[in-house]
Each structure stands twice: as C-alpha cells, then as structure tokens.
Simulated assay, not measured.
Amino acid sequence: MIVRIMEEGQRRIADSALPRLEELDEALLAAVEKGDEQAFRTTFGALLAAIRELGEPLPDDSLEPSDLILPEEGASLEEVRGLLTEDGLLPN
C-alpha cells in the first residue's frame, strides 16, 4: 500500500505492517465517532508516527498512485471525519 501524508510525501507500507495500522485506524474511528478530541489527537499522531516508522519513503519524483492520502499532523477532527468511511481511513 502507498500512503501519502500531505506535506511529507509518500511511503510504501508492507503488508506485514497493516495489522498495526488497522488497529490504530479502528481506535481513530472510535475517537472521531465519540467526538473525543484528546483521543483523536493521540491516535492520529500515533497513526502518522507508525506510517513514518513502518513505511519506506518513496523518492520525491515518484509517480506512484496513493492508496491513502492523509492530512498533516495538525489536521482537525472534522477534517479527518470527512475522510472516514464506515471502516475507517485505511482502504480494505
């Protein structure tokens, strides 16, 4: 899977990393549904950190299509809510 974090570029995520990202995605979905700003901030930050840690950065000139595009770290709960599906952020 290719994930783009706005203002940071793209990262290739191995299938073996997906369970960790899915766990964070579920927690993020729950926080957004509850409107819990603190849980949202913590979980969204953890999701972005996991993507940075587990993903292999792609070159800036890479033209790979992104499977998922995420806003930068300072995004609001409402911005992320607009990106969610009933299953969360990660594509199935």
Rank of each mutant, 00 (worst) to 15 (best):
L84N: 05
E86D: 12
L48C: 10
S76T: 10
L83A: 06
G45M: 05
A75M: 11
I13A: 01
R4Q: 10
M1V: 05
V32R: 01
M6S: 12
L28Q: 03
V80A: 03
T42D: 04
L47C: 03
R52W: 01
L24T: 01
P19Q: 13
M6K: 14
D25I: 03
E8R: 08
G82T: 05
E72A: 15
E86T: 00
G88N: 07
G88C: 04
L70K: 08
L70P: 01
S66F: 09
I69R: 09
E23A: 15
E64P: 02
L70M: 12
S62T: 12
M6A: 14
L54N: 07
E64W: 06
E8G: 01
R81G: 02
R11N: 08
G45C: 06
A14W: 08
R52V: 05
I69S: 11
A46Y: 03
A30T: 01
P91A: 12
L89V: 08
D36R: 00
E23F: 07
G45P: 07
E26K: 10
D67P: 05
T43G: 05
Q38P: 01
V32S: 02
L83N: 05
L47H: 00
E26G: 10
D61R: 14
A50W: 05
E8L: 06
L89P: 03
T43A: 05
D61T: 13
R20L: 15
E26W: 04
R20F: 09
D87K: 09
A30Y: 04
L84T: 04
D60V: 13
R81D: 05
P71K: 09
Q10E: 11
I69M: 07
R81I: 02
L84F: 01
P19E: 13
D87N: 10
Q10N: 06
E72H: 11
Q38D: 14
L90Q: 01
S66D: 15
N92Q: 14
P59C: 12
I13C: 06
T42H: 03
L89M: 09
E72W: 11
T85S: 15
D60G: 15
A50L: 10
S16M: 11
A30K: 06
R11T: 04
D60K: 15
A14E: 15
K34W: 12
L89G: 04
A30D: 07
T85L: 07
L29Q: 00
A30S: 07
Q38S: 11
G9N: 07
A50M: 08
E23L: 15
S16K: 09
A14I: 10
L83P: 02
L84S: 01
L28Y: 00
E23T: 13
R81Y: 01
S76Y: 00
D36M: 03
V32K: 00
D15G: 15
E37L: 06
